[in-house]
């Protein structure tokens, strides 16, 4: 027996180079149908993503207006942007939203997921309830919350009145408009919660058992087992959440009919970009804005990725 195996090993060892050569040939020729199969997607990607993407670099140096090709103006669009007050205001609004919304969505999302991970009867119902708001279209969500936050007869202020707190004019005040928006966005947090739940399900029970044997209480287990092993999922949601926060558009746009009222306190970066592109015939200017946003998001994602080595713990490593 042993002898046979040895022989075989020798055989394969002898044939190995030949086989490899054949395989190389095989992969080379069989990749053509593969490319062909992928071609509808590749053509779509090149035609509808790559081409517009790279042309927008060129357009950002022109006065392109969608209807007219415009002229080449070099860096003028970028120069103008840096002197455009509303541009800075929109960056401030967007950063404000991202800085508060992303960490809050992680804290609340993880807490919610942990609560929805308890072994209680009827958990499927609770999970469904918390996921439901995600299914509400953004426009409907805007209308719903405009009613809830209505200063005159909204539910939120009526409840506050009962407790004796005079509620602010949520969406009509410069101070409260952005916090209101953050609140509304947090309401539809179901998507990341589902991902956190999957992450929680992935943590092996042995670790909790071991911790219990060591006498750890709930808090210690959460800090030393749950959270570290949830970091890959938190990492994912942090990256996606930040990108999403910088692209905030639908909710404030529908709520303010595109005006960003009150006093431009809800004019977000992409809203201003959209106005320039489709209302003021300044597609070149808008393209420049798009590329600045791309650089910002790219840099931010890079920073998150670099630091992730220090705080993200993958299982089995």
């Amino acid at each position: 027996m042993k002898q046979e195996i040895k022989n075989e090993q020798i055989n394969t060892a002898v044939h190995a180079p030949v086989v490899a050569k054949q395989r190389k040939k095989l992969t080379k020729s069989s990749s053509i149908p593969g490319w062909l199969f992928a071609s509808p997607w590749i053509i779509g990607l090149v035609l509808f993503y790559a081409f517009p993407l790279f042309s927008s670099i060129y357009y950002s140096f022109t006065t392109y207006s969608i209807l007219q090709p415009g002229e080449f103006v070099g860096l003028e669009n970028y120069y103008k942007l840096f002197n455009d007050e509303l541009f800075w205001k929109s960056i401030y609004n967007t950063v404000y939203f991202a800085v508060f919304f992303v960490p809050l969505s992680i804290i609340i999302g993880v807490a919610l997921a942990m609560m929805l991970n308890m072994k209680v009867k009827g958990m499927a119902i609770y999970r469904t309830i918390f996921f439901l708001p995600t299914l509400v279209p953004q426009v409907a969500l805007a209308v719903l919350w405009m009613w809830l936050l209505n200063p005159g007869f909204g539910l939120v202020n009526s409840l506050l009145d009962v407790v004796g707190i005079p509620g602010p004019n949520w969406l009509g005040s410069e101070l409260w408009s952005k916090p209101s928006l953050i609140l509304m966005s947090l309401w539809a947090i179901g998507q990341p919660v589902i991902i956190y739940l999957a992450g929680l399900g992935d943590i092996p029970n042995e670790l909790y058992e071991a911790a219990e044997v060591d006498g750890a209480n709930w808090f210690q287990k959460t800090i030393s087992v749950t959270l570290p092993l949830l970091t890959p999922v938190i990492f994912f949601n942090l990256v996606m959440g930040s990108i999403g926060a910088f692209q905030q558009f639908t909710l404030p746009y529908t709520m303010t009919q595109g005006q960003g009222t009150p006093a431009n306190s809800l004019t977000f970066y992409v809203m201003y970009l959209y106005d320039n592109a489709f209302k003021f015939f300044k597609m070149g200017y808008a393209s420049a804005m798009a590329w600045i946003l791309f650089v910002i998001i790219m840099a931010l994602t890079a920073v998150i990725f670099i630091t992730s080595k220090r705080w993200v713990h993958y299982q089995g490593k």
């Binding site: 209505n150 200063p151 005159g152 007869f153 004019n169 969406l171 009509g172 005040s173 009150p262």
Partner: peptide, 10 residues
């Protein structure tokens, strides 16, 4: 202005 906005928003 905020009181007026509270009125008009309702």
């Amino acid at each position: 202005v905020e009181d007026i906005a509270g009125f008009t928003d309702s």
